[in-house]
Each structure stands twice: as C-alpha cells, then as structure tokens.
Design a protein around this nucleic acid. Structure first.
Lengths: 412, 412
DNA sequence: AAACATTTGTTGTAGCCTGCGACAAACCAG
DNA sequence: CTGGTTTGTCGCAGGCTACAACAAATGTTT
C-alpha cells in the first residue's frame, strides 16, 4: 500500500521540529539571547539549552557573553549564527549573471555580477561562467566556509519539479535541465534548487524586504518578461509542476497585440519592457541603457514620456486589480522594471486599483516598490537553499568544507 | 515578547498528529482494517492499536470482525467511522436554502433544500429558516447523534477572518456577521465556519469529487456571480482576510460593460448568468427557470443559442487561461452554472485555452465539470467543519448530543 | 564591602509517546 | 489436529520535553 502522506510522527520529529524552530528563528530574526529563545519558542530553559548545544556542536551557532544591559539577574548569553555556513545563490538574467554567498542569518558575504550582452547563449557557457564565478568567490572566503546548497534564479519559465528551464526566450533556451547541469558542474555535490526570478523575489521580500513577516504576498517581477512570485498563507505557491505565477500571460485585452507566447492580448504585451518602449516611441531590444534613458527623461519632466508612463500605469493597475482580487494579499511588491517605474506610474495605477479592486480589499492592500533592487531574487534563491537546511538541521549530512573540493576532484 | 508562530513541540503534539492522521485517513478513505492503517501510517501495530482504542473510546470509530477473505492469518478487524458524529452544513443561495447532516466519512445522513424567490431578504428570517430546518432535520436523526460544528456556504463575498458576509448583492446583504448570528441562534454552542460557495466547492471536489486527492485545484463557481475556490499545495487559498478567489472581478475587457462591483470589464460581465441571457436575448433576473429553458433550446439544437454558447465559451476560455497560467493547477473544476453549460461551451473554451495557456501547462491541466451538482458546496462546508475536528480529535471538548439541547435551552 | 533580590543556566527525575521483540490469538491448508 | 501465517497485545527501552531544585552571575541595598 502506498504510504500515506500524513504518516505517523515519532519522538524524533519533535526534536527535529524544535531544532528547526530555533535555527529558523535565528536565521530570520538574527542573534538572540537564550532567554529570548525560551520566550519566543515556548520551550523550557532546559530544552532550549540542549537544542542550542546541539546547534553549537554542528557549527551553526556560537554563544557570546552578552553586554551588561543594566538589569539585574544572571545575563543570558547571546546565540548568534556563525559566518562559516553559507548557501550559494546564482542568477541568470538576459543581460547579466550573478552569484552570491549568503550566510546563516542572511548576510551577504560576497556578491559578484557580470554584465553580458543580450543574445542567445549556449547553456554550457553559462554554466561554466556561473561555476567559475562561484569558485573564485569561495576561494576568497575563509577556508572554514561550509556550503550547504545552491539556489538558482532564472529569467524564464521553470518547471521546478525537474529543475528544468522550459523556455527562456531571450537567452534562447528550451527544455534545459539547468539544475542538474549546475549540480554536475560543481566540484562538490550539493543540492540545487531552481525557480524563476519571481518565485525567489517574493521570498526575498518576505524574509528581508518590504513584506517581512507577512503571510500573503504577491511579487511582480518584470525585466523583459513579466512574472510573479506568490506567498500564500506563508508558503510559496508552486502549482502542479511549479509553473504557477506566469501572470504575464493573463489575457487582459481581447483586441491586444500578439505575444511571444503564441497568444495575444497578454498582460505582458501591455506592461512589459517592450510595451513601455513602444509607448515612448523607442525601438525594442536596446537593453537596460535605453530604459535608463527613458527614466531620465521622465525625471526631467518630458511630457510625452510622462503621458506614456501614465498609460503604462493604467495597464499595470488593470492587470494588478485582477491579481489582487484573486489573491487578496497583504501587499503587492513591484520588483525589477516596475520598481524603477514606480514613481511615474503609481498615480495612474492606483486610480485603476481604486476603481477595480473590491473596496474592502483595496483598503488593506499595500502596493509598494521593492527595496532590494536587482539583487532581490538572488537573496531569495539563497533563502530557499537555506530552507532545506532549516527544515531539518540535523538531517542532512554535514557537507565538506569548500576547501576540501580539490581532494575530491583529484580523486575522480 | 510575541510568542513565535513556529513554537516548540512536545510529546503530546506527536500523539495529536498521529490521532489526526488516523482519523483523517478513515474520514477520507473510508473504513480500513487495522493492518491497512499500520501500512498507510507507517506506525507500529501497537501504536495503531492504542490510537484506534482512543478513537473508539471517544466514539468516533468502532471495530467489526472482518469477513474472511480467504487469506491465511489472523483477520484484522475493520475500523469504521460511526454514524453518530456529524457536522452540519448550511448553504445560502440567492434562490434556495439548504442544510445537511454529514457524518464522519462523508456520508450525507440527511439533506434538505427549500427554494425561495430571488429577492432581498432580512437576515434574521434567513437565520431562523436555517436553524428551523436544521432542528427538524436533527430531530429525525437518532438521539445519539453528536454535532461537532457548522459550515455555512454563502453566495457572496465573505470575510472569513470575522465570519462576515461583506456583500451578497442579490440577497441584499452588506456587512452581515452571519457566522455569529447563526452561532447565537443555535440551541447549543457550536463552532461555525463560513466561506463562499467557491471556497467550499473546491474542498468538496478535492475530497469527494472529480479532483479527489489532487493538490492543486481551481473550482469556478458561477450562479449569479462568479467566484473561485482554490486549493494550492493541498491547502485552501484564503488570502490576507479571506477574500481570495474573487476571480469574477478580474478585468478582462478594457472596453467592457459596467459591473455591479463598480468596475467595468470584469470577467463576470462576460461569463456570468446575466451575460449568457444577454447573448441569447433574454431578460435578466428570471432565475433558474430561464436558464433551464436556454439549456433546453441548446439541447434541441437552436442555432442562435448554440452560437451564443460558443461566444460564452470563448470568454470562459479567455479568463480561464489567465487563471490557469497563474495557478498551474492539476485540474480546473467548473461548478454551478458552468457545469450545466459545459457540453455547449467546451469546444470554444478549449480552443481559447489551447491558444492562450502555456503549452507545457495546457498538456497536463484538466478542465472538467463538477459531478457533485448543486450540493457540492454543501458537502464542502461540512468537510471544512470536520476539518476542525480532524486537526485535533482529542482537543475539542466532546460536544453534547443534540437531544440534550432542550435542557440547555430550558436553563436559560 | 557584604547581604539580598533577580534572572538565568544546569542537572536530575518524571511523564508521555512510539519502537521493538516476544507471546498469544485467529485464521487457512493439509 | 497440526503447522504456517498474519495480527493484536503486553512489557520494556529509548527519545524527548516538563518540572523542580540548585547553582551561577549580575544589580541593588545597607
């Protein structure tokens, strides 16, 4: 018989859950005294003591005498995440590649981005570039660093279930098993997770950005294509195969333009980068520089550009209204291109929302630009890689330190 | 300090989780032998024995000698849910009220629906009608019946967080705390949950309908208004305040008609009952009979009606494409009006989906009419009421049997 | 400076829950 | 009736946390 998904628990599950709760609290909330942990977890001092001891032994945390704060009583030592444990974040955009090493607690130990021109790319080159960037970055970190996993953000349609990039139009990829390719190209064996920019962007916002701590969040990611990442009831929305969030292809205009997805009148044809350039009368495909130029014109008060922004904002609101009525989020975070356009489109967008979103929902929903900038999805990728460790801190085999990789490679 | 939501577990949590797993398995899968339970839960025979014993003591289940099946070995007794424990489902539609008593295991012990004309209704009358219907129904059930909770489905916009009907346009309600009103009107104190038809409809489909066992499901409910219920990763999509799923008000037509929500071009203005009647040239507001008549014409092959159905189907597909691209569900279940229209709109809807949904998603997603008919949401309401019990079978106070209510009322 | 109050870490015991192994019970086959 | 097989039951062991008592470290008061 198929083992039930709601299978039985045992005592070890309790230990795992508590270990996970303590480590997650430290990862998300930063250093805390033991008595803080007692209060926030509801466990007893003895239990917290044992759990912190185990985490210390595994190297995830260390304790320090707390500075005296003037209150009476024995001071509680501060438990803080070490910087020795990291996950690697990678990002594949149309016109840049990036990697980062992010420690427990969310600190960016190092971060590197290289620009490249917008053109189709062989997959192998990209994989090699990413691995090279990563290796160089890690070589400059202390030799004690232990890598726990890799998160890869891709500007494209990703089937999370088998870690495959199904379509990445502007990079020219179709059905590329990028997750596995990266895993095999790395000198040590690491778990690799992969998703699109939107999926990771929303995670970054919920954990380190403007939506910190919220349970229902939509993040709209727009660079060349338009996508979304959704946190529903605190958990990422995946869908049956991991394709959820392709909001760029919600049909919004029955008389609209053809979309590169094969349909027509998709939201993306009205609010994507191409649509913006079309409205201001510029040729498509110029890349980031052209958008920068348009933003400069808007900042300078160019009336035609501002009118175009207004039209863009109305379409933004038109589509967003449907998304908000569908999800009833606490907040919608606008990332990527939309974060940069925000000051110029906000008014028109907002008045569309006022008209089209249920009043009771409109009153409570916030619509904000991301504050994390271009690196939001990168942070989110690392967060998701961390998530695997946080879920079961003692479960995974303790990985080898990065510096041991040459031995392994030598053996092959 | 605010107590962390990821609070610590203790041994009792394990017991609760296992008790819950066993009872849920029986509720969803029906009677099973003890050794089936051992296999599906992964627990040991002794643990299952203790758990089943506790459930028996609480009256949720009883064991019977199994009929010999010819295989050697000591026969395992069959554990079956008793019929003594029920939840009450209620449904408030524009033109009918319904109540049902549903036992552990999902059997409908009794079920009553009364039609009424489409018109604005005082809330108090409706509440009294529901409670009367319920009392009469329960009086005819065995006196041993114990009621665990009430689920109320409403055709309207419901704020689940405070159990309030914010808008029910055709019934004429605004900001009605229906959940509390029903709770206070009942002769015994019971937990009441409330949501709209779509939210409960999808639950019924996932537990007892065409989407049984699936993890990502969208249910489109359309009677007068259009709404949706969504199961994402096995859990109901609620949103920040419980307003999620108002897909009837996704803007899909920039040049569209005014909607009663104050916006224009909402999906509902193109696929709601009014839109259908408009397309076949009939007056709105005639109620179910008119729709029946239209369906009869379609069945008879009336070319004008079939052409209207075709147009309706295209708009159905147009909006559904966006919903599918957003959620990537395993299956979309069409309920209410849409289930009845299905044979006549399927072709046009399908060709729109072929064009507008990502190929990889289109290939795996099913679009099916509900098989549960008008009573789907009613079943779902009972399921959700059961859910409170399933989550912690030993936790809730054992409620008084229904027959004890007169004593209580007498004391007041 | 010493005694007291307060807060917190530590240690040992008790209680809860499940896993495991041995045994008993109930069935089929011959 | 005997042997093989499957399954329920019982007692014991192991893992985990709660609880209570004690020890340690700090501020406050005398």
């Amino acid at each position: 018989m198929r083992r039930n998904e709601t299978a039985g628990s045992r005592s070890e599950s309790v230990r795992q859950a508590n270990l996970s709760a303590i480590l997650r609290s430290l990862h998300l909330g930063g250093a805390a005294t033991r008595s803080d942990l007692v209060a926030s977890s509801g466990l007893t001092r003895s239990a917290v003591g044992a759990l912190v001891g185990e985490l210390t032994e595994m190297g995830f945390v260390h304790e320090e005498r707390s500075a005296s704060d003037g209150s009476p009583g024995r001071p509680s030592p501060i438990v803080m995440p070490t910087s020795d444990h990291v996950t690697i974040a990678m990002e594949v955009l149309v016109d840049s590649l990036a990697v980062a090493a992010i420690s427990l607690g969310g600190h960016v130990l190092d971060h590197r981005r290289v620009d490249r021109t917008r053109q189709a790319r062989p997959v192998d080159d990209t994989v090699r570039n990413l691995v090279d960037l990563t290796s160089k970055m890690l070589d400059e970190l202390p030799t004690t660093v232990v890598v726990h996993g890799v998160g890869v953000a891709v500007a494209g349609v990703v089937r999370r279930s088998d870690k495959t990039v199904v379509v990445a139009p502007n990079i020219g990829w179709n059905d590329v098993p990028l997750g596995d390719l990266i895993r095999l190209a790395l000198p040590i064996d690491l778990p690799v997770v992969i998703a699109n920019d939107g999926d990771f962007g929303v995670l970054a916002e919920v954990r380190r950005g403007v939506a910190t701590g919220m349970h229902d969040v939509v993040y709209i990611s727009g660079e060349v294509g338009v996508g979304a990442g959704v946190i529903a009831d605190g958990r990422p929305l995946g869908g049956a195969a991991g394709f959820a969030g392709e909001v760029g292809h919600i049909p919004v205009n029955p008389g609209g333009l053809a979309c590169r997805c094969g349909s027509s009148g998709c939201w993306e044809t009205e609010v994507g980068e191409e649509a913006l350039l079309r409205r201001v009368g510029r040729a498509a495909g110029g890349g980031r520089a052209v958008v920068d130029d348009v933003l400069a014109s808007a900042a300078a008060g160019d009336a035609d550009v501002l009118a175009a922004m207004d039209a863009h904002g109305r379409w933004l609101g038109f589509g967003l209204a449907g998304i908000i009525n569908t999800f009833d989020p606490d907040v919608v975070v606008l990332g990527g291109l939309f974060a940069r356009l925000f000051p110029y489109v906000a008014a028109a967008m907002s008045s569309e929302l006022d008209r089209r979103v249920f009043d009771v929902v409109r009153q409570q929903v916030g619509v904000l630009p991301s504050g994390l900038g271009l690196d939001g999805p990168l942070l989110g990728a690392a967060e998701w890689a961390w998530e695997q460790v946080l879920a079961d801190p003692a479960g995974a085999e303790p990985p080898l330190p990065w510096c041991a990789r040459t031995l392994i490679v030598g053996e092959v």
